[in-house]
Design a protein around this nucleic acid. Structure first.
Lengths: 144, 144
DNA sequence: TATCTATTGAAAATGATTTTCAATATTACC
DNA sequence: GGTAATATTGAAAATCATTTTCAATAGATA
């Protein structure tokens, strides 16, 4: 059993929730996909393997995974909630290609430091931040 | 006539649109409010002065102002589109207080530069970016 | 003033997400 | 293993911000 399943099981036990085959399948498919999926996209993938799982269940599983720290939501401002793996992934920023939709996760410690000091200069106690750089990726720039 | 009205009028003429009293009123109220309003909040303010203006008209005016560069949309990730004055306001980032909702517009040239180089390191041609730092503002920190 | 067509506002539609609810499944306990 | 308590499921309905529709109205141009 992978670490993520353990985390989910531990959370389920601690909150008097229940283990279900649906949650297990949804988690496995989420973990095996290295993309920013939307709930709808995940539901489609899930249905390929088990057509009896409804999208409500997928939505609810997403919320659950988010609560136990396996998933985090990403908002690129197009009105669709996407999500990414959280366990084992530290904080990072995003470079998002507006042509093909691909993205890169990046981290620049100097930017992080400057953000900290920027907040402090204004009396803010920062808790989290979101940095997204939109543009054209190398491949899309070449295609013209 | 203030500069913003001129800009709107010029845009309206150039696109064969029409000047209407509704647009004029909505623009004036938008300009006189130094807050991040949502469409619904703006509509409420507008209705105080003219109860005959529907929210559809307010929504459409927002899109129009956005197109002529008077307004830009701000998305703090709560599912509600808010907007701010754009004319005369350069690019800036946001410090957002998660307790009281207040925000500060900030700019740190060194962060901007580092973002540029971060993008280039990864072959990205950046077009725009969004940086939001969430936290607690000075006043809310004091309140405990 | 006449005509063309952009604009308006109410209501309906949209689309992502959430809630409801009756049926079912899981867990703890006997 | 059986049973009771209750969490979960899935379909359908509800939500909520936003957008579209459409018939009536009102700017702009000639």
């Amino acid at each position: 059993m992978h670490k993520e399943s353990e985390i989910l099981e531990r959370y389920i036990k601690s909150k008097d929730l229940r283990h279900t085959p649906q949650r297990e399948k949804i988690l496995n498919i989420f973990l095996s996909t290295e993309k920013h999926l939307s709930a709808d996209e995940l539901h489609k993938l899930v249905k390929k393997r088990d057509s009896d799982i409804g999208y409500t269940t997928v939505y609810r599983a997403i919320k659950l995974f988010s609560k136990c720290g396996l998933l985090s939501e990403v908002d690129f401002g197009d009105g669709i909630m996407r999500f990414e793996h959280k366990y084992g992934h530290g904080h990072h920023d995003h470079l998002v290609c507006t042509k093909c939709g691909k993205f890169i996760e990046v981290i620049k410690p100097r930017i992080e430091k400057l953000q900290e000091s920027l907040a402090k200069e204004h009396g803010f106690k920062p808790t989290r931040h979101k940095l997204q750089i939109f543009g054209t990726c190398r491949r899309c720039s070449m295609k013209k």
